[in-house]
Design a binder for these strands. Structure first.
Length: 993
RNA sequence: GCCCGGGUGGUGGAAUUGGUAGACACGCAGGACUUAAAAUCCUGUGGAUAGUAAUAUCUGUACGGGUUCAACUCCCGUCCCGGGUACCA
């Protein structure tokens, strides 16, 4: 009846979830005078595994914020959708023959069902799915906008290609150098441009486009038959599957994100991301400020350009190192050194990416025989090659300063090269010292200067005499945007004469052709290459056989939610202006580099092209911590029992596999080899007993379990549901797997103990906790509050149901405040009971204190403390036996973001016809919270010497205690009269003189 | 190696950002109700010493030092744990 019991909870929660859906209470309008608030979750990839308790953590937090902002009077956009393109669905199709579209739709339905049980306030009418053609039409459209853009470095923004053509027609490219300097045409005039063929013009424009097609070094994964992005490769192997990855040249689409490096970096200062998240992005962008220096070679007409961040060390250069792939290697190697160089190049060629990664510290290299000349002192410097210098960064060449750089130092020591010391005592001859604080020596005109200051002096000098210039480099590379996969967005281009042309808007979307062949073609082309009719769709015209990466759909989905069904634009300008930036974005930190950078990039390009009036998509980012699982383990004794004597039992007992499990403490002693002889004896005697047991059970068999001389023990994961307080439920364990049916157990004090370890939640570890299970036992409100109560949102924490009772008890206690069923009355008499009596000051104090703290905690995303605050509140009101409407009604509204179902039910019991969503969050009144102080004079030797400050609610006794303590003041002030003395219950805390 | 976080009772975690450390919850112990159990409610609960007791005193936020009337909080050094990154010149 009116008790907060399992059945009642189920009834309440189901009733309200149904009502919310029927009345469409979460439907959000774009057309309102209310201020907006945009709360966004990172939309999930709908995997087949379903939800575990870790998934909803961020969603619960965002839902609390959304509901809170709603009752605070905001028009709240809180949508949900699915990142539905991606590799796993395609892999699943390969293995099970189920089309990705089918498995994805199934998985989405399952996700929606599970999410629906938790009481989220999503406006499902705004749902987006990236694999829906009406959605990816606009992914393709935005891609074409990027394709039709170039980055004007002078204005630091993207512009239309047509603007670039105008510039080329009037002045050539003298003021807009080609971003990719490897191109064969470097400079051209207006008349050159006009003389070029259409094909050449297009090839030149391609060098400027923000989305461009080029032969690039890509991470080729033979096993997956596809190219991976840099961030999909971890330690030289694929992030999924761990397959080896090699470098390969392929014609790929890329996004020229490097042009935005500086803006992506600067933008970080304006947005509210955590320090670590900003740091990760900064490292990824990897800005370094330095200089390019040209060195003439002793051979005529050759020069070597290096990039360095330390031009101040120019007099400490003892040798040069260039990358093995450097173009000069072929040209400058002397006849005598040719053999060495060839051998080294062959060695480099033979090394796989994984080997290189693993042996980073290995020092290798070869001398070219050529020399460069130090422009400042004419010293001849030998030029070496080594794989520690990367072709892809800077100029692929460095000036080596062994006294200041660890790698250069090791190289010099290894090859016995001389080391010039330019930093005096800062160099000890054993280790390089990268300091910038040393005073330079052996450095000609720099002698006596602090290194830090010399950096700028040398840079200026280089520019003066024209042998170098200041230069900023970034580690970040352009983003590879082609995937050799089926389940992604096709590129909306048509190839004519091998050049890509944008499709017209009216021709979009270019739909993914139906196919059941998901095998990569193997030569680097994706499954679409198998559909030759689709690829060669008209004479002389072709489609691209690649598709876009998952990042494409995710790079702009937050914009589509604003106007999800618009057939004429990716979103209406009015909607974009109204909803603007995402106010809070909640999601996992694993998307720090890829997704967040691409979303920021697309936003910036769309902003530059005039579609958006903001250029950072997310105002604030919260990374919820991962919830890990607690795995449980059992220990199996590996014995000589084996199938050969079991077979004597005949077919009937074929499945019997007698095994022996040891309780944890015993097993661990044996594993750690610390078991005393008694334990071995004990086990042996137990095994004898077990043998007897088997023999009695199966008299027709005369077998024996023999133990190997050295006990061998296996640690196995066991389903966490079979374990309670580390004790194994043996009966259920035997039923769990057929293999264990005939197991015997060696116990510890009559109990089988398991051990546990914190691991990520995964089906293979049998440690997954399903939220449906928790909801079934306690209800969704308890799940929501408990996940918040578990600890700070951003912190990773292991899941444990210890303590969930506490949260449940709170909700019941809260419920009981409204009901006259303190436990003594039989259920039939219990009922809703609320009075309109005037509240006391104590009750008001409890109310306003709670309102204030809860409001502040939500604003600070400190949900665990707000849950505590509610608990304190319920405890206090329940000991005050308060059942007054004026106190309880505001609390229902305050609680509604956390526990919407119970709040909704109480709200309706309180006589409101409308939903609690339309209520407004009560304002707290300062007059009940004033911790304001009153002054109390301190007399020392009969004279008033100071004022003491007390909080209003300090008791008389405490004041008296404090007065006594005030005598100590004299000692501190040494006769001076203090202006103010702050006292906290008996202790003087501050004296202001 | 480098760059960010972090280390508080038996456990998860609070602490107005320098002002009564351990809120709240779990667990544990004791009590009430009950034929009994469960549930519920009440009380206690960092450690140590003294006391029949209420209580008092000391000690205590990874370790060692420092600043301050006052340090979980700030500074220096050390040790652990988590995350990021890896020849980026």
């Amino acid at each position: 009846m009116a008790e907060y019991t399992k059945d009642e909870i189920k009834r309440i929660e189901e009733k309200w979830r149904k009502t919310w859906v029927e009345k469409e209470v979460y439907k959000v309008s774009n057309d309102t005078a209310k201020p907006k608030y945009y709360v966004l979750d990172m939309f999930p990839y709908p995997s087949g595994a379903g939800l575990h308790v870790g998934h909803p953590l961020g969603y619960i937090a965002s839902d609390i914020v959304a509901r809170f902002k709603r009752v605070k009077g905001f028009n709240v956009l809180h949508p949900m959708g699915f990142d539905a393109f991606g590799l796993p669905a395609e892999q699943y199709a390969l293995e099970h023959g189920i089309h990705p579209a089918v498995s994805t739709a199934d998985n989405i339905n399952n996700f929606k069902r599970q999410l629906g049980n938790i009481g989220f306030s999503y406006d499902w009418s705004r749902e987006v799915q990236t694999c829906d053609p009406t959605y990816y039409k606009w992914t393709q459209w935005i891609f074409l906008q990027i394709f039709d853009s170039w980055f004007n470095r002078k204005k630091e923004k993207a512009e239309r290609i047509s603007e670039l053509i105008k510039i080329f027609e009037s002045e050539g490219n003298k003021s807009h150098s080609i971003p990719n300097s490897k191109f064969d045409i470097q400079h051209f005039s207006a008349s050159d441009w006009k003389g070029y063929s259409e094909k050449d013009q297009q090839r030149i424009l391609m060098e400027y486009r923000l989305a461009y097609l080029a032969y690039t070094d890509v991470n080729w994964c033979e096993a997956l038959g596809t190219v991976l992005a840099n961030d999909e490769v971890i330690n030289g192997v694929s992030y999924r599957g761990g397959f080896p990855v090699v470098k390969k040249q392929m014609r790929q689409w890329s996004l020229r994100i490097t042009e935005y490096a500086e803006r992506l970096l600067k933008g970080l200062d304006e947005i509210d991301f955590s320090d670590s998240m900003k740091e990760i992005q900064r490292n990824w962008i990897g800005k370094s400020v330095g200089a390019l220096i040209n060195f003439k070679l002793t051979i005529d007409n050759y020069q070597l350009t290096v990039f360095t961040t330390r031009p101040d060390t120019i007099f400490g250069v003892d040798f040069m190192v260039i990358a093995p792939e450097h173009e000069l290697v072929k040209k400058i190697t002397t006849v005598e050194q040719q053999g060495d160089i060839d051998a080294y190049l062959k060695y480099v060629e033979s090394r796989s990416e994984v080997e290189r990664m693993a042996e980073v510290k290995k020092i290798t290299g070869a001398f070219t025989g050529a020399f460069a000349i130090n422009p400042f002192n004419e010293k001849e410097i030998p030029i070496w090659i080594s794989e520690y210098v990367l072709a892809g960064y800077g100029t692929g060449a460095i000036m080596a300063v062994p006294c200041g750089d660890e790698r250069d130092h090791k190289f010099a020591k290894h090859f016995n090269l001389p080391i010039t010391n330019i930093i005096g005592s800062h160099y000890n001859g054993e280790e390089a010292n990268p300091t910038k604080e040393a005073i330079l020596e052996n450095s000609d005109f720099l002698n006596g200067m602090v290194m830090r200051d010399a950096i700028d002096v040398v840079a200026t000098k280089l520019e003066e005499i024209g042998i170098g210039k200041r230069q900023v480099n970034y580690k970040m590379r352009d983003a590879g945007w082609s995937r050799q996969r089926y389940w992604g967005e096709p590129f909306p281009v048509v190839f004519k004469d091998d050049l890509p042309y944008a499709m017209k808007e009216s021709e979009l979307p270019l739909e993914l052709p139906p196919s059941n062949n998901f095998k990569p073609s193997g030569n680097g082309e994706g499954p679409l290459a198998n559909l030759t009719d689709w690829i060669n769709f008209a004479p002389g015209l072709k489609h691209d056989s690649n598709t876009m990466p998952t990042h494409a759909g995710a790079a702009w989905y937050f914009l589509r939610y604003m106007d999800p069904h618009n057939p004429n634009a990716f979103a209406d300008k009015k909607a974009l202006d109204y909803w603007n930036q995402v106010d809070v974005y909640i999601g996992g930190s694993e998307h720090a580099v890829a997704h967040l950078l691409y979303a920021r990039l697309w936003t910036k390009v769309l902003h530059d092209l005039g579609y958006l009036n903001f250029d950072e998509p997310f105002k604030k980012l919260i990374n919820q911590g991962k919830i890990t699982g607690e795995s449980k383990f059992v220990y199996r004794l590996t014995t000589d029992t084996s199938a050969n004597y079991l077979s004597l039992l005949g077919d009937k007992y074929d499945h019997i596999n007698p095994t022996i499990f040891l309780s944890a403490s015993i097993a661990e002693k044996i594993i750690n080899k610390t078991a005393p002889q008694e334990i071995y004896n004990y086990i042996t005697s137990e095994v004898v007993k077990i043998n007897e047991l088997f023999i009695t059970k199966y008299p027709e068999a005369y077998f024996q379990v023999r133990i190997k001389e050295d006990f061998h023990i296996q640690k196995l994961h066991v389903d966490i549901n079979l374990v309670e307080n580390d004790q194994l439920d043996i009966a259920r364990f035997k039923r769990w797997k057929p293999d264990f049916e005939f197991s015997e157990f060696i116990l510890d004090n009559g109990v089988y103990y398991c051990t546990s370890a914190i691991e990520k939640m995964s089906k293979t570890y049998f440690n997954v906790v399903n939220p449906d299970e928790i909801i079934n036992n306690y209800g969704a409100d308890t799940l929501r509050m408990y996940e918040m109560f578990l600890g700070p949102l951003e912190q990773s924490k292991p899941w444990s149901t210890q303590g969930i009772d506490g949260v449940f008890k709170f909700l019941r206690r809260f419920w009981n405040l409204f009901h006259d069923n303190t436990g003594n009355l039989p259920a039939g008499q219990a009922g809703f009971k609320i009075t309109d009596a005037e509240p006391t000051r104590d009750e008001l104090k409890v109310l306003h204190k709670t309102l204030k703290k809860v409001e502040q905690d939500i604003e600070n995303f400190s949900f665990n403390t707000s849950v505590s605050e509610f608990m304190i509140c319920a405890n206090e009101l329940s000991s005050l036996k308060c059942n007054k409407r004026s106190i309880l009604e505001p609390l229902v509204i305050a609680l509604s973001p956390f526990a919407p179902h119970i709040a909704e039910e109480l709200w309706s019991l309180l006589g409101h016809a409308d939903t609690v969503l339309n209520a407004s969050f009560p304002k707290y009144d300062e007059q009940y919270l004033i911790e304001s102080t009153f002054s109390y004079p301190i007399s020392i030797n009969g004279k008033v010497r100071a004022q003491m400050e007390f909080a209003l609610d300090v008791s008389k006794e405490e004041i008296e205690k404090s007065v006594l303590a005030s005598e100590v003041v004299q000692k501190w002030t040494e006769g001076k009269t203090p202006k103010k003395v702050i006292v906290v219950i008996g202790k003087i805390v501050n004296v202001v003189l």
